[in-house]
Deep mutational scan, measured.
Amino acid sequence: TTIEWNGTKITVDNPQKAKELAKKIAKKLGLTVKVHGNTITIE
């Protein structure tokens, strides 16, 4: 699972952990999480 935001890509083996990490990042930055299959985008 890949997390993408602002040109940065982070690959996380565990999809559940990836989703939790994305939510934490999005919350800190005041952004939203969008899931597209194996890609999680923070916008």
Score class of each variant (00 low, 15 high):
residue 22 A to G: 02
residue 36 H to I: 12
residue 15 P to L: 13
residue 12 V to W: 03
residue 5 W to D: 02
residue 23 K to M: 14
residue 26 A to Y: 06
residue 26 A to V: 03
residue 15 P to R: 11
residue 41 T to E: 05
residue 32 T to G: 04
residue 13 D to H: 12
residue 17 K to N: 06
residue 42 I to V: 06
residue 43 E to L: 14
residue 23 K to E: 13
residue 9 K to E: 04
residue 8 T to P: 03
residue 35 V to N: 02
residue 20 E to G: 06
residue 2 T to F: 09
residue 39 T to Q: 08
residue 28 K to P: 02
residue 7 G to C: 15
residue 30 G to R: 05
residue 1 T to R: 05
residue 30 G to P: 01
residue 17 K to G: 04
residue 29 L to E: 03
residue 34 K to F: 10
residue 31 L to R: 05
residue 10 I to C: 14
residue 30 G to T: 02
residue 28 K to F: 13
residue 23 K to N: 11
residue 25 I to R: 01
residue 39 T to E: 06
residue 7 G to W: 10
residue 9 K to M: 09
residue 10 I to N: 01
residue 13 D to I: 12
residue 20 E to L: 15
residue 10 I to F: 09
residue 23 K to W: 15
residue 32 T to Q: 10
residue 31 L to C: 08
residue 34 K to C: 12
residue 17 K to L: 12
residue 1 T to G: 07
residue 10 I to K: 01
residue 34 K to S: 11
residue 31 L to F: 09
residue 22 A to Q: 01
residue 31 L to S: 03
residue 12 V to S: 02
residue 23 K to Y: 15
residue 10 I to P: 00
residue 27 K to D: 10
residue 5 W to Q: 02
residue 36 H to G: 03
residue 43 E to K: 10
residue 22 A to H: 00
residue 31 L to H: 04
residue 18 A to F: 05
residue 20 E to P: 01
residue 8 T to I: 15
residue 32 T to A: 10
residue 12 V to T: 04
residue 20 E to M: 15
residue 39 T to F: 07
residue 27 K to S: 10
residue 24 K to I: 13
residue 37 G to W: 04
residue 1 T to N: 07
residue 17 K to T: 09
residue 31 L to G: 12
residue 10 I to M: 06
residue 11 T to K: 10
residue 4 E to Y: 13
residue 6 N to Q: 10
residue 11 T to I: 14
residue 14 N to R: 03
residue 18 A to S: 01
residue 4 E to I: 15
residue 8 T to Y: 15
residue 13 D to V: 11
residue 10 I to H: 02
residue 40 I to Y: 03
residue 24 K to S: 08
residue 35 V to H: 06
residue 30 G to S: 03
residue 1 T to F: 14
residue 7 G to L: 06
residue 25 I to L: 11
residue 41 T to Y: 15
residue 14 N to M: 03
residue 17 K to C: 15
residue 19 K to N: 07
residue 42 I to G: 00
residue 3 I to L: 06
residue 25 I to G: 00
residue 41 T to W: 14
residue 38 N to I: 04
residue 26 A to D: 01
residue 9 K to Y: 10
residue 11 T to Q: 09
residue 8 T to R: 14
residue 3 I to N: 06
residue 12 V to I: 13
residue 13 D to E: 12
residue 16 Q to W: 14
residue 35 V to R: 06
residue 19 K to M: 15
residue 30 G to V: 01
residue 39 T to S: 08
residue 24 K to Y: 15
residue 4 E to Q: 11
residue 43 E to Y: 15
residue 43 E to Q: 12
residue 2 T to Y: 07
residue 8 T to F: 15
residue 5 W to M: 05
residue 30 G to C: 07
residue 27 K to C: 10
residue 1 T to S: 08
residue 3 I to Y: 03
residue 28 K to D: 07
residue 5 W to Y: 10
residue 19 K to I: 15
residue 26 A to Q: 05
residue 20 E to R: 15
residue 22 A to F: 04
residue 30 G to E: 02
residue 10 I to D: 00
residue 34 K to L: 08
residue 24 K to L: 13
